[in-house]
Amino acid sequence: MAVAVLGGVAVRQTQNGQGLEQQARQAQQQLDAVSAVPAAPDAQAVHAKTANGALTTVVASDQQGKAVFTAFRLPARPVPGRPTSCGSTTTAPRARPD
């Protein structure tokens, strides 16, 4: 019985290891694809700062046919069920009817 349990654990660990290797390969492929865009000779970048303070960059390459978007200093994600502000608004005073 103990041998069967240990054998099952070893098989499961091997499968988990293979799954992790597969995930690592996929992550590397995605990283390579993203890295190719700014490395392209025709790459062009546009930088901006959003109203909420986030810093954004879009790098595009016609040769690659792709664009990469990055953002830094994004605001925290809203907590489900908690109201969030969309910013402040001001209302112009209304003219009083005569």
Rank of each mutant, 00 (worst) to 15 (best):
P80C: 05
D98C: 06
V59M: 02
Q44S: 09
D62A: 13
V9L: 11
R82P: 01
F69P: 04
T56C: 07
G7F: 03
P38E: 13
P93Q: 09
T91S: 04
A67T: 15
R77D: 07
S88A: 10
A48P: 00
G19S: 14
G81S: 12
V59W: 06
V11P: 04
A39T: 11
L20C: 01
Q22L: 13
S61H: 11
A40F: 07
S85Q: 01
A76H: 06
Q13H: 08
Q18S: 12
S85G: 06
C86W: 11
A51Q: 09
A33P: 00
T89N: 07
R12C: 06
V46R: 01
A48E: 13
A54W: 06
K66E: 13
M1N: 12
G81F: 00
A76F: 04
F69A: 11
H47L: 08
D62N: 13
L6F: 08
G87L: 04
A92L: 02
Q64N: 02
S85W: 01
P38G: 06
Q28E: 03
P93K: 08
F72M: 09
V5L: 04
K49H: 02
A76G: 08
Q26C: 02
L31R: 00
L74T: 14
A48L: 11
A36R: 07
K49L: 09
A36N: 11
A92K: 11
Q23W: 06
D42Y: 07
P41M: 15
D98H: 05
G8D: 09
